[in-house]
Write a protein that binds this DNA or RNA. Structure first.
Lengths: 284, 284
DNA sequence: ATAATAGTGTCTTTCAGACAGTATAGT
DNA sequence: ACTATACTGTCTGAAAGACACTATTAT
């Protein structure tokens, strides 16, 4: 079949000039979440759980010495999924992990070096599987405890506005950002109001991921990706609670997730209180 | 602050070589949905509604004479959202319409011309607002009635597989595709098994959008983006039914959406049966 | 014994599904 | 009168919220 210039498809592709337009760079950025636990207050109490995110200290301009999401350029002969898998493997030395594409960030000025479009991915890992590898141009990689508060919420007839204060801590390191989310009838706008030691527009990406995780945990079984093979129902509930950022009633929670778990014959030991039965994920 | 080569941020950015890597092209592809209605069978019956998608006949290689989603390249000084808005405006001459980024498709071989990463957007429009503009390198733009059936479904312990048969018709034009969706514990794989007269991997994108729309309609008020300013509750129910691909009970439906609508004092006329009260969207 | 958590029972409320029954214009 | 749709009432059952109550172990 010939086109209007009388070329076959083969001829057309041969003369096609791929560099006709100036092209943006494309990167992937990884939101790697895990569950961390803090020290027990005393021998009886359970340890508190936190939602943790992996960040890397930038060793180069721009945003030198600030913390950024692990990520990198998508090379020309690699799918974006493969780039994400590669970055995950480089940073955490794990593969075959739950991973999901989240959103693609394409504002013009988001990287001062050049036009960069960035596709963000979320990965959920069980902490026990991981050993960190500091990569080439990062002086450091660390897990940060995440928390946030919604400081202000305005609702008009056709505008919903909220301010989110995001906090990330790891030892003495303390990062924070304020994000403004405006929901108009047609679209949602996310702006960074301030960003302390978080590089680029990564604060936006982080909160976007948290919102997605909150949604997903309600109607899928993603939470189990964060769990070890065996766990108590209270541990599972803690994970739901930190992700949803609210307390749950244990009786209702147990009913709700009953069909997702199978009991084992094992129990926790030396807990300082009644032992707890261990369960496994019951895939369906 | 100086980096390891002793450069300030300003100096670093000046010497930064943006063309160090070979870059992929980035495009946006638009899934523009609307509701169409078929002719009444007789004076009493209501007209059947269909979910319609805008496609454009390709006037150039590759996939010449096949149908493709409207879309185009993201230029270097334009955000991807702006590119999507621009494409929508070019194709349908509307703006200020509900629009949402869906997913970014980044497989290596998806475009025979060159490496192209494509970001898909969904737009929902009320049909009455639209006039179509055939664009430069498209010989034709048309609304296609969409339908699909899930032909096969296998569920194992850690694999869920389904085959989807997608059908698009517009007058004598009839397009179809078969898509295989495999849900593994870690990720979801979407493959095109066959694609009749649908260009590129657009069949995948279409079904992805339908699934997203189905999800969104359950827990948001997106459906109203497809409605005219005033509508009957039966019309609203028809829209839910074609998107969800199943019948709903009207009593339950009315209870469920009651808080999303406000009644008016107007009624339908000349319907051949009991008139129906008109409602408006009640934003909250 | 006590502290802290593990786990169950049950009442209430909410809401979806089912379906029957009444209402009303146009021919 | 008849047809096709509009709209409401109510029974039922499933599931979430609330909360009291019992069980169990390390110290």
């Amino acid at each position: 079949m010939l086109n209007q210039q009388g070329l076959t498809e083969e001829e057309f592709l041969e003369q096609y000039n791929a560099n006709h337009y100036e092209r943006p760079s494309v990167t992937v950025d990884m939101l790697i979440f895990t569950i961390g636990s803090q020290q027990k207050e005393n021998y009886r109490k359970l340890s508190k759980k936190t939602l943790q995110l992996l960040l890397i200290k930038r060793g180069e301009h721009p945003y030198m010495n600030q913390w950024a999401l692990p990520g990198g350029f998508v090379s020309i002969n690699e799918s974006i999924d493969d780039a994400a898998i590669r970055e995950l493997k480089e940073e955490t030395n794990v593969d075959n992990i739950y991973m999901e594409q989240l959103y693609t960030w394409g504002d013009v000025g988001r990287d001062p070096r050049t036009r960069v479009i960035s596709c963000s991915y979320m990965a959920l890992v069980n902490r026990e599987k991981i050993e960190l590898h500091a990569s080439t141009n990062a002086t450091d990689a660390k897990w940060f405890d995440m928390s946030y508060t919604i400081t202000e919420e305005k609702v008009n007839e056709d505008k919903k506005e909220k301010l989110v204060q995001l906090q990330l801590t790891s030892g003495t390191e303390h990062l924070s950002a304020i994000i403004k989310i405006t929901e108009l009838p047609n679209k949602t706008i996310r702006e960074i109001i301030s960003s302390e030691d978080i590089a680029f527009d990564h604060a936006k990406m982080i909160f976007y991921a948290v919102e997605r995780l909150q949604n997903k945990i309600e109607y899928t079984d993603v939470a189990f990706q964060l769990m070890p093979p065996q766990f108590t129902l209270t541990e599972l509930q803690q994970v739901y609670e930190i992700i949803l950022n609210k307390q749950l009633l244990s009786a209702a929670f147990r009913r709700k997730i009953a069909h997702l778990v199978t009991e084992t014959n094992e129990y926790t030991k030396n807990a300082g209180h009644r032992p707890s039965q261990l369960f496994r994920f019951n895939k369906q």
